[in-house]
């Protein structure tokens, strides 16, 4: 990936409550917490359910299938992203329900190639020591 020159990309620093998410990413899996009593799957990870407050949480491995819910294309780079502009910042919706912010890879980041509701699948991209989930068009670029 780009970003070898200049400032490094910001690296997320896991906390105890988010460690399973980042451990999963390092293992190539998108792990998502789900509340056992009420069944709600949610992101960002928390040690309790944001709907019913239960702390009876299980982690499952999501399919990695998602759709492109919305996005913008940044023309002014954040520090560490100077060589990537213009780049898309997206909100993707997982097949299991939760949404997350992500980047879209393996496709030009322009309005012609990024169409709302297009089908995506997760890939993992290294930022320093951490693997970060990103998404690419499902079944290859259009």
């Amino acid at each position: 990936m780009a970003g070898d020159e200049g400032r490094p990309k910001p690296v997320p620093r896991p906390t105890p409550d988010t460690a399973p998410y980042w451990d999963g990413a390092a293992a190539g899996e998108l792990r998502v917490p789900r509340c056992r009593p009420c069944g709600e799957a949610f992101l960002y990870p928390r040690p309790h359910c944001p709907v019913c407050s239960s702390d009876d949480i299980e982690w499952f491995t999501a399919s990695g299938r998602a759709t492109l819910h919305s996005y913008l294309i940044a023309h002014i780079p954040a520090p560490g992203f100077e060589d990537e502009v213009p780049y898309a910042v997206a909100v993707v919706e997982l097949e299991e329900g939760p949404r997350l912010m992500s980047g879209i890879v393996e496709v030009p980041n322009d309005p012609e190639h990024l169409v709302l509701d297009m089908e995506l699948e997760v890939v993992f991209d290294r930022h320093g020591d951490v693997a970060v989930p990103k998404f690419r068009p499902r079944g290859g670029a259009r």
Binding site: R13, L72, M101
Partner: peptide, 17 residues
């Protein structure tokens, strides 16, 4: 953890999403 790694730091790269 969940937004900044995607280059979403200042308002122009988040607010219009």
């Amino acid at each position: 953890q969940f937004e900044v790694p995607y280059g979403a730091i200042l308002a122009p790269s988040t607010f219009p999403i």
